[in-house]
Design a protein around this nucleic acid. Structure first.
Lengths: 231, 231
DNA sequence: CGTGGCATTGATGTGGCTCAACGATAGTGG
DNA sequence: CCACTATCGTTGAGCCACATCAATGCCACG
């Protein structure tokens, strides 16, 4: 049995506010689960039956439109929380973009536990407020930014969010990183087509703002330039 | 002095979970404030110094881009909560779209009160989760829908949200309603230009989906048709 | 050495933006 | 009460950014 004590995200997930005894209780109702890249964990419109903490890996939240059109509405990293507590339905699909491990709870178990632990609810509230701010800020990008602005914003955002948090030595954004997803998914994040994303990236490379050593690797060569372009 | 007992939104705002005594305590730290249409209540980037409940009126949450580009990221109705508790900065501007009344608290007062009343925090958490779902769903519209789909979706959404909640007799969407804002603001909600909004509306009128008796009034004549068009 | 799944690149089309003129409506002051 | 004006909305013409359609290139895999 896996113990919370050895959990990789012990100090960063919402569990961080719990003491040893509370953690034991939470541990009893939790269950770690491994997912392979591409696999979905829950579906838009389904009954909300589970929630989870991400231990390892990157997942996407997405919503779609009958015809194939899809919009990625959130990206979830280790220590983030997924699922919809206190609600009947999942409003979006959760899919692993890399192999991932999550610590799952049935929603009813989690809801009951949370209601008995105000500190946990408070932490969850803080996270949710932050996510709401982030989502709303992304709406500006989707509604008002041009393709070059979108791509530049995206690269900067990624360089900040993909910082390897296990290594707390060098904080601040990274000048070099590997994207956890392909062009189609970048397009689905930015509300563009795959071709436009590709063209914008090669343009940024040709103009000396970035390098593209391989399909999924990015090197930022001119952060200020990108920031200026991001609008 | 205004008392919570006579508050219009007493049973729908987050305060609904508080008992008489708690409400008195909250009443002591709150202050009602009137705002005229067009006036801003807080600004993007400012220190988060106050939070509030909306008693009456409609307000917008918006974020902008240096040049004039603006995106409306939320619309706030009576009984909704505004502001950013437990955080240092307002992430968006709050502006009244109609004359409005709000019940304000300094952020520090509210934060302290909330931390002592888990039921209140729980209610706030539920609201925030719902708002997050709503914001993410709107991202699909902004990122992936065409102009006709956007406008159709907007009209349907408005007909559901503008239901006069003081009159609880006829629930369900309205076939006739008055928008609390003009064309520019519709454009800023949908990520379009004013001209495109205008054209789409007159097209919907010419095709018999809606009527436009005056600038701000909408009559829905073919809800199913609109729903189909919304994608 | 194929084969299949991405990514890039090019050619073409078009939806929505831009720029500009005009019309309607509400508010104002004579 | 009506002319005057400011504001807002509509309509038209033209254009451009991004989508679409199509071909080619690049690896990683068996």
């Amino acid at each position: 049995m896996t113990s919370c004590d050895s959990c990789l995200v012990r100090n960063r997930a919402i569990c961080a506010v719990l003491d040893g005894q509370e953690l034991q209780a939470l541990n009893r109702i939790g269950r770690t689960k491994s997912i392979t890249a591409g696999q979905a964990l829950m579906w838009e419109g389904d009954d909300s039956l589970m929630v989870a903490n991400v231990i390892d890996g990157v997942l996407k939240l997405s919503t779609g439109m009958g015809d194939g059109r899809e919009q990625i509405v959130g990206i979830v990293y280790p220590a983030d929380f997924i699922g919809r507590p206190f609600g009947a339905q999942s409003q979006h699909t959760v899919t692993a973009m890399t192999d991932a491990r999550v610590c799952t709870f049935t929603r009813s178990d989690f809801d009951a536990f949370a209601r008995q632990h105000p500190e946990l609810e408070h932490k969850l509230l803080q996270r949710t407020l932050t996510e709401l701010d982030r989502a709303r800020h992304w709406m500006l990008l989707l509604g008002r930014k041009s393709a070059p602005e979108k791509v530049a914003t995206f690269l900067l955002e990624m360089s900040e969010r993909l910082v390897d948090r296990t290594c707390s030595i060098s904080n601040g954004p990274m000048e070099q990183f590997t994207l956890p997803f392909g062009r189609q998914q970048i397009a689905d994040i930015l509300g563009l087509t795959i071709e436009t994303v590709s063209r914008q990236l090669t343009k940024l490379r040709n103009d000396g703002y970035i390098d593209l050593p391989s399909r999924r690797d990015i090197i930022i060569k001119n952060r200020d330039g990108l920031a200026h372009m991001a609008g």
